[in-house]
Design a protein around this nucleic acid. Structure first.
Lengths: 232, 232
DNA sequence: TGCCATTATTGCGCTGGCGCAAAGCAAAAA
DNA sequence: TTTTTGCTTTGCGCCAGCGCAATAATGGCA
């Protein structure tokens, strides 16, 4: 039985990288996709590995981290189903610049660089889609760079929660659940601060009724309240 | 007389975006290039403008800045001849996300989105080159984001000077001149700190003989000294 | 049910770096 | 030359946020 067969069609068609491709290319990509599974704590790839595959997350959650020369880690992105990662394989880079770790049991489809490059050669639409994806990354990090350089911790954390909610938010009766099991430490790594400061801010916001803060679980009760914190 | 005719050939051929293109595409791009001049302080484009053109700097220096919602500015990049800017026009973004201002009298070649998109449609090599350029941006900002999030000001400023030297360094007998007229304020905007802290650090490094710090002019006397500051 | 490993909270002291304000300088303009 | 303008330096006070250390909560697991 082909893995993920029930969802293959949908998930490729819903991914921006694969938009507007001719049917034969899409079919080819479906055929060359290889399923990969990782248990909680497992790695899809690690920083420094030879760069070989691009992934599309089908089920589970993962985090993308980067390690500095002195071992300081930051969390660049936390992703749920439908997200691409390892897109950098579309370039001539040789090593993974980041690590992809499963936050829970996860499955992904993966493609080799060769398969993708062939497709890009044949099909300009694919190459242009890839360009969009890259450009979106570049802009996101420019933006986050500016925030980190110019804004105070409180605002940055508010922005971080809002971004997470928009990427992995799940509507609940009480509010929007950030559907990713992130610790205070990890939130700190995303917002550019420490676990302690994150904890203090979340506690404060909870006492104001803005959010619910649980263990690896945050529900935003009043998004507009956070927005006004984030924007001033 | 066609402007820049003496340099056109060289400058396109030396630009990574135009590498390995078939001669007819290159000729087409040469033909569709439009020269643009801006005096010191002039703008090639401003944040929020409709996104229309990509530029290749031929002479002069420019800076790329981004403005936050509260008017806090940061300096994303400072560029010299041979640098591309406005590459984001290759995507479907509608507004300029940044501002490009001439630090001195500058001339550039420019292309419309339509010209470039046509080229990308016809020529996969061009689209893949564009992908490389975007990916390089994305990685650079991921990297700088990490530095900003995890490193102290001293290190970040050292990194900033080294990066500037590698991008716009000119060898002099006394050391490597950073060939860009940047104020302390602007260096601060790049490194994520204030003009005051930049001034204090530069003074300190000058007294240690690591650099020469003049008005809008810095010469790195001992690159390895800065490197050891930057890396720890 | 109770145990254990993680994760989260919070009091406390400390300091890196911010930012005002004033003075000093250098280059360009008049 | 003098003036003007913009850049740079530096003293000083201050506080946001860091990070240790101790404690408490939570959830998985036997």
């Amino acid at each position: 039985m082909p893995p993920f067969s029930a969802d293959d069609r949908d998930i490729l068609a819903e991914t921006s990288l694969f938009q507007d491709l001719p049917p034969e290319e899409l079919a080819q990509l479906r055929a060359s996709a290889r399923p990969v599974h990782r248990p909680r704590g497992g790695y899809f790839f690690m920083q420094g590995d030879p760069l070989e595959r691009m992934y599309l997350l089908v089920t589970g959650r993962i985090k993308i981290t980067q390690l500095g020369p002195d071992g300081q880690q930051i969390l660049l992105r936390a992703l749920g189903p439908g997200s691409l990662f390892g897109v950098v394989v579309l370039t001539q880079a040789k090593e993974c610049p980041v690590t992809a770790e499963a936050l829970e049991d996860s499955t992904a489809l993966s493609w080799t660089r060769a398969d993708l490059m062939d497709c890009a050669q044949r099909c300009p639409t694919f190459a242009l889609n890839a360009l969009q994806v890259m450009a979106a990354h570049a802009q996101e990090f420019q933006e986050r760079f500016r925030q980190l350089a110019t804004e105070r911790v409180e605002r940055r954390l508010a922005h971080t929660l809002l971004r997470l909610a928009s990427q992995a938010g799940r509507k609940l009766p009480e509010g929007v659940l950030i559907d990713l099991p992130l610790t205070r430490q990890e939130l700190g790594e995303m917002a550019g601060t420490t676990q302690y400061t994150v904890s203090r801010l979340l506690t404060q916001w909870e006492s104001q009724g803005l959010i619910y803060a649980g263990r690896e679980r945050i529900i935003i009760r009043h998004p507009h309240g956070l927005v006004s914190l984030a924007e001033g």
